[in-house]
Design a protein around this nucleic acid. Structure first.
Ligand SMILES: [Mn+2]
Ligand SMILES: [Mn+2]
Ligand SMILES: [Mn+2]
Ligand SMILES: [Mn+2]
Lengths: 227, 227
DNA sequence: ACAATAATTTAGATTAGTCTAAAATATAAT
DNA sequence: ATTATATTTTAGACTAATCTAAATTATTGT
């Protein structure tokens, strides 16, 4: 039995995990920005979590933090809850894909292991969330998944939308109108170097679409090998 | 939009509502006992809730509190959440009737109005909870329900179990083995004045059973008119 | 290499919810 | 009607999580 952690602590760990995809260490300012709290609050929390027993963070002054194995386990636990819940809200309670995130963000801290397990069974042990994200398995191992963004693709390349940023309902509704859902195949037809706009042809859509960097940086893709 | 209240505040209001079934005003000590906090903490909370805008409690020093209409609405809201959730956990996720309470006690504070509504629809707008309790309707009106306890019945009387105290898993499992579930009909065959034991014949059970006051005081009954 | 700027940390304060110990008040008993 | 007991309230303190303002440390540009 692990000590009961506050929602706040769980949110910090989850966010540190997410931002660790990009950089080895995560800085005070990044977390302050992402969680919308002051940098001073973040420093305080970093210190507290690094002094926990066992430590949840590896903290070096002025250089930010790295999750310990303990801390990562907790982050993955919460992420599993979140993604199972989103799917559950959609499949069982009929939420639309832009409505699930906010509800899951609260419930993820509150459900028991039993609830998690029952939901997983009802859903048939899914490996991917409603927005395409990989779901950590029962042992909290994260399945392999692509790490490229649409943002970095160039003309001639073909790909499949893997997963999309899920926290902005308006953005999600927009994506759906454009057919940009996980599994959608597309090819890049043009690139504008100054604004980083990409022109795409999405399979099944009759019009080509042009997307700015603020959109393309939110879409993870699997890049198809040229055949 | 009502201001977001803490889980703690919601628990106080819910408990005050429950204890108000017996006495007009609820005292400091009763709540301290029920919520397992010190009397000093309760006094503090009584004062804070009475000074809210609008006030959630009507507090008179040394005489305890009464819910205001505002306070009652919140208590009923949480109670509706709790009872819908218990039923949902049982029907949809396969929890047994002794396992639902603890989970619902945490989730009740966290689900949105939308979640509540979807669950109500999935369950077919139930009027009674898994342990027989009345469920406040969408407008937070509590349906009519009996207020007698098995404890106060006497030989010759017949009755139906209406609802049972739901917070002790062991107690709930015991009740099930005795056939003492909501809807069960029975007749009182004997009463022992010194220990308040009651001997019952429960319909469908072959053995008569003897129940002490600590059991009979936990069972709400509908008393059948002699016919 | 050194000053200017940016990021981070420390210091001190605040709020909700809790506690223990002491003071005040109400209830019960003689 | 006093006294004894039980209950409630007040006073003062603690923790988690936050803030602002000031101090410190890093980074960057010249
Ligand atoms: Mn999400
Ligand atoms: Mn879990
Ligand atoms: Mn319950
Ligand atoms: Mn509600």
């Amino acid at each position: 039995m692990r000590k009961r952690l506050s929602d706040t602590v769980e949110d910090y760990l989850k966010m540190i995990y997410k931002l660790s995809a990009d950089t080895e260490r995560v800085g005070t300012g990044q977390i302050a920005e992402a969680l919308e709290v002051s940098p001073a609050s973040v420093t305080d929390m970093f210190q507290r979590l690094a002094n926990e027993n066992p430590p949840l963070l590896d903290y070096i002054k002025h250089q930010g933090v790295k999750l310990t194995n303990e801390g990562r386990k907790i982050a993955l636990e919460i992420l599993r809850h979140h993604r199972l819940l989103e799917l559950f809200l959609h499949e069982v309670l009929g939420y639309s894909w832009d409505q699930v995130h906010a509800e899951a963000d609260r419930l993820e801290h509150v459900i028991s292991e039993k609830f998690e397990e029952r939901v997983a069974v009802v859903l048939g042990d899914p490996q991917r969330g409603l927005h395409g994200e990989p779901i950590p398995n029962r042992n909290l191992e994260m399945p392999d998944h692509p790490t490229s963004y649409l943002h970095d693709m160039r003309p001639e390349q073909r790909g499949v939308i893997h997963s999309v940023s899920d926290d902005d309902p308006g953005f999600l509704r927009f994506l759906k109108t454009q057919g940009l859902v996980p599994g959608a195949e597309f090819s890049v037809v043009d690139f504008s170097p100054y604004d980083n706009n990409l022109r795409l042809q999405v399979n099944g859509q009759d019009q080509e679409i042009v997307l700015g960097a603020s959109v393309t940086a939110q879409l993870k893709v699997e890049i198809k090998n040229a055949s």
